[in-house]
């Protein structure tokens, strides 16, 4: 098994920050808002490794900083400090030292992202097929017929009716929008996929089928994934390892079954006890 992603001491602070920010925020301080300068320490000192074909869960409640972690890694936001190395076959990329064109290249070719809000991942003014075409065009596929075939294959794989290839996503149900997002994310067969609360807000039966789809894809393509969720059920079903975040810090990490059956941190114990 090879490492695909190595994150070290990732931090993200909203606001100008001050010398007291770190010591006055976090789980012990019970806040992520610095009382001295008003900055929000969204993420501090997060480190983890991700291996090829592995699914890592990032769990925590809203405001824990879990989404910020993947947004930093997908270059939606710049990290304040820290390092992330992406290992891609024979090459390796120091993510935060790349220029914006290189970052965009990685985003388009080697990473995929599925957002909770489909508006972030899809262009609602262009068709489902056009959304997938956009990602293929970004990666320099210039043959209309080939683009169309690939878009149809991807939508069929994610169980979107082919008769709806040329419909606008705004006319789709929430579950279907997520399927189109997944198809779009997979268009370039990325080795690394970020999933940010992808099933939140969907009907239970729809959630279940999306999760099945994600697992099937993981088994078929051996895509490494970082799954951000507050839902312990999603963590249990999808992930092999997980990290638990609170107020921007990782308070616990381990094998998923161990975190769920033998949580070490008081917060995780409370979290698990509230569900089981």
């Amino acid at each position: 098994m090879n490492k695909i992603l190595e994150v070290r001491n990732l931090s993200r602070i909203y606001g100008k920050g001050c010398a007291l920010c770190i010591e006055s925020t976090g789980p012990e301080a019970d806040t992520n808002l610095c009382p001295h300068c008003g900055s929000v320490v969204a993420v501090h000192d997060v480190s983890f490794d991700l291996f090829e074909g592995e699914i890592l869960g990032v769990m925590g409640e809203s405001g824990s900083g879990k989404s910020t972690v993947v947004k930093n890694l997908y270059f939606d936001q710049a990290a304040t400090s820290g390092q992330a190395i992406f290992y891609d076959a024979a090459r390796q990329y120091d993510l935060f030292s790349l220029n914006s064109a290189q970052q965009r290249w990685l985003r388009n070719h080697r990473f995929g992202m599925v957002y909770q809000n489909p508006h972030l991942g899809l262009n609602f003014n262009i068709t489902a097929g056009g959304n997938i075409a956009e990602r293929l065009l970004m990666s320099d596929l210039m043959d209309y017929g080939a683009i169309r075939d690939r878009a149809k294959t991807l939508l069929a794989r994610t169980e979107v009716l082919l008769s709806r290839v040329d419909d606008l996503p705004k006319h789709f149900s929430g579950g279907m929008q997520q399927r189109v997002q997944i198809a779009k994310a997979l268009a370039t067969q990325p080795p690394l996929l970020f999933l940010d609360e992808v099933t939140t807000g969907l009907d239970l039966s729809v959630q279940a089928r999306i999760l099945d789809l994600i697992l099937e894809i993981q088994q078929e393509l051996k895509t490494a994934m970082v799954v951000v969720t507050h839902d312990l059920g999603v963590i249990r079903l999808l992930t092999g390892r997980a990290i638990v975040m609170k107020y921007g810090r990782v308070i616990e990490s381990g094998l998923t079954d161990q975190i769920l059956e033998d949580p070490q941190h008081a917060y995780t114990q409370r979290l698990v006890a509230s569900v089981l």
């Binding site: 068709t127 097929g129 056009g130 956009e134 970004m138």
Partner: peptide
């Protein structure tokens, strides 16, 4: 960055 994919999508949609 010579990122014209969205322009090309317009052409794609036109053909569709």
């Amino acid at each position: 960055e010579a990122d014209y994919s969205r322009l090309l999508v317009k052409l794609y949609e036109d053909i569709v």
